[in-house]
Amino acid sequence: MAALPERPDTPCVAVCSTTFDDVCRGCGRTYIEVARWVAMSAEEKEVVWRRILAEGYPRRN
């Protein structure tokens, strides 16, 4: 298996909005991904990273 790219520990940019939204407007993760992040494997996190980067996240306001 190829090595995973170096990434920050979390895509969080401290612009959280998961209280009323299904997807955080800051990092692009779903509220379930945010809640599970610390328990996810590196491969699971990489899947999320690739999706949010393709969608233009993380965003800083």
Rank of each mutant, 00 (worst) to 15 (best):
M1C: 09
A2S: 09
A3C: 08
A3F: 02
L4P: 01
P5N: 10
E6L: 13
E6P: 00
E6M: 05
E6C: 05
R7K: 10
P8K: 09
D9E: 09
D9S: 11
D9M: 07
T10H: 07
P11V: 06
C12P: 04
C12K: 08
C12A: 11
C12F: 05
V13N: 04
V13D: 04
A14G: 08
A14Q: 10
A14R: 06
V15R: 11
V15S: 11
C16Q: 13
S17V: 04
T18K: 04
T18E: 01
T18D: 01
T19S: 13
F20S: 15
D21N: 14
D21K: 12
D21C: 12
D22F: 07
V23R: 12
V23Y: 07
R25K: 14
R25Y: 08
R25D: 13
R25N: 13
R25A: 12
G26L: 06
G26T: 02
G26C: 03
C27F: 02
G28T: 03
T30K: 01
T30F: 02
Y31P: 01
I32F: 08
I32N: 12
E33D: 09
V34L: 11
A35G: 15
R36C: 03
R36S: 03
W37Y: 09
W37E: 14
W37P: 15
V38Q: 11
V38T: 12
M40N: 05
S41T: 12
A42G: 14
A42I: 08
E43H: 07
E43V: 04
E44C: 05
K45T: 00
K45M: 00
V47T: 00
W49A: 02
W49C: 03
R50A: 00
R51C: 06
R51Y: 07
L53M: 09
L53D: 05
A54C: 11
E55L: 15
E55C: 15
E55R: 14
Y57S: 15
Y57T: 14
Y57G: 15
Y57E: 14
Y57Q: 12
P58Q: 13
R59C: 02
R59Y: 04
R60D: 15
R60I: 14
N61A: 14
